[in-house]
Write a protein that binds this DNA or RNA. Sequence first.
DNA 1: ATGGTGGGTTCCCCA
Length: 256
Amino acid sequence: MRIATWNVNSVRARLDRLVPWLQEHRPDVVCLQETKVADELFPYEFLEDCGYNVTVYGQKTYNGVAVLARHGIEAVVKGFPGAGELDHRRLLACVVEGVVIVNVYVPNGQAVGTDKYRFKLDWLARLRRFLDEHHAASDTLVLCGDCNVTFDDRDVHDPVKWRGRILCSEPEREALRHVMGFGLHDALRKHHTGGGLYTWWDLRTRGFERNDGLRIDHFLVSAPALERCTDVEIHTAMRAGRAPSDHVPLIATFDL
DNA sequence: ATGGTGGGTTCCCCA
């Protein structure tokens, strides 16, 4: 089973990139973030025509997550249970072929010390509680998405410039490690231990042209899933060319 | 120290 994750920065604006990529690579499961569209306006037909069942949890303008699967999508959970209608639409969990899929769009946090930063740290604490209350580390579980946090300086092209800043600050890394404490492992690091592997480059500073990137999109998987994980690839080429997202897709392969 | 680009909406917010 091959599982993909991609922050598309608007699913409607990215269809011309997303559809050919799906047709070429045909991942079994695709977790999308930042779909930026209300559920009734989601472009279902384009993705269904690629051979996918589609489950969405979106909102107008901001946030939004979706799961596409070539197999049946079961046990769908939209948002943190009990959080209410006003909560950001950033979490979509489900089961595909017996694998628990948790698709997340972690808040960006804007800047260290802001209200959005505190919201981000709290959101990560809620994510850990959600895992504790609804899942077990002995399950075959794959949590993936835009985590908006680097693990360490290997994930940062210019660690001096980024030290202590948003996406790299120690409280964020600690909050992410607390999520990992549920019993998750950084699947990419099973296969690639070096630096220089990035998934996001800032549009505003034309970061991609200088490879000024960060690794903030992750596959965080339970021990049973890690054991069966045979590769994680970053599709860096998708950052080049016309109208890219600021994030590139990743595909993790599991011997399942 | 700031701004840059891009998406979606609305006369600006968010990343």
